[in-house]
Simulated scan of single mutants.
Amino acid sequence: MSMDPLLAKARGLWEDLAGVPVSFAPTGGVNVVVSPESGVCPVGWAGVVALGESAIVTVPSESAAVIVRDALTRLPVDAAAVREVLPLARVLGPAVLSYMSPEGFRPVAGSSTVEQLSGHHPALRSLETAAGPEDAAEAALDEITSPVFVVREHGKVVAAAGYQTWPRRTAHFSVLTAPAVRGRGLARATGSAAVTHALAAGLLPQWRARLRASQRVAAALGFEELGAQLSIEI
């Protein structure tokens, strides 16, 4: 049976980011490889990506590979389960990985006026300050390479979305909304404008989210959850 094209594209991206030859097993399971320069996780950590019924894991050394193979080959990509096996490890994630086909896009036709700014516009730094350091770091607006799509209220940017161009012609999305205006659909409005831009450029939209609120925005726009990612300090 042929693989879903969206899943195949997502897997190809993360196989490239692994930095060494590795592939997702077609029949399920986990493939662990040593890759000190892996782009899947922070340097010196193990990176786990599960897509469909299989996963790949990159580790920085052979000794780490032995530990991780024993711990992860029998586990789902779940931070709580990992902590049970590796109680001293620090874990980032898991974050849900969602992707979109052009046919699945559900654009938002809201009442909010969406403007376009450059990624270096000072108004974005003000939004990051309002959102707080944790949310700002998660959104990483400063890494956006596309135009940034924003909503203003009373002259201030209160919501923003854009994307960073990743390998395999992938658009990795960033979205941030000021706490005072959350729940009003502004993330969907700005996200919709950014997705429209990415699809027009022929890119594969990728949405990575830990928080349920962000996952709900992705689902509302037509993203499909295909798997998850987490990083484990070795």
Score class of each variant (00 low, 15 high):
125 R>C: 00
184 R>M: 07
129 T>F: 01
53 E>S: 12
87 P>I: 09
81 A>T: 05
103 E>F: 01
230 L>R: 02
2 S>M: 08
173 F>H: 07
210 R>T: 14
66 V>L: 07
71 A>V: 07
78 D>S: 09
210 R>K: 13
72 L>A: 11
220 A>K: 01
65 A>V: 01
34 V>I: 15
229 Q>D: 08
69 R>S: 15
209 A>G: 06
26 P>I: 05
30 V>Q: 06
173 F>T: 12
46 A>C: 15
166 W>P: 02
197 H>I: 02
16 D>R: 11
122 P>F: 10
193 A>W: 01
85 V>Q: 11
47 G>P: 04
118 S>D: 14
78 D>T: 03
31 N>W: 00
31 N>L: 03
33 V>L: 07
137 A>G: 09
64 A>C: 14
61 S>H: 03
184 R>F: 05
223 F>E: 00
16 D>V: 14
132 G>F: 06
195 V>A: 12
67 I>Q: 11
169 R>P: 00
159 A>M: 03
104 G>M: 00
92 L>E: 13
203 L>P: 02
212 R>T: 13
150 V>M: 08
55 A>K: 08
115 E>T: 12
1 M>T: 14
128 E>F: 00
61 S>K: 01
111 S>W: 05
126 S>I: 02
145 T>S: 15
160 A>L: 05
16 D>G: 05
104 G>T: 07
22 V>M: 01
125 R>E: 14
172 H>N: 13
219 A>E: 15
107 P>C: 08
220 A>L: 00
226 L>C: 03
177 T>P: 08
109 A>Y: 11
124 L>A: 13
180 A>T: 14
137 A>N: 09
146 S>L: 05
190 T>K: 01
213 A>Y: 05
40 V>W: 03
11 R>T: 04
11 R>G: 04
118 S>K: 08
143 E>N: 06
227 G>N: 09
224 E>C: 11
17 L>A: 13
49 V>S: 09
158 V>I: 14
218 A>M: 01
28 G>T: 04
215 Q>H: 01
207 W>A: 02
97 L>S: 12
210 R>I: 10
162 G>Y: 06
170 T>V: 09
161 A>Y: 10
13 L>Q: 06
190 T>S: 02
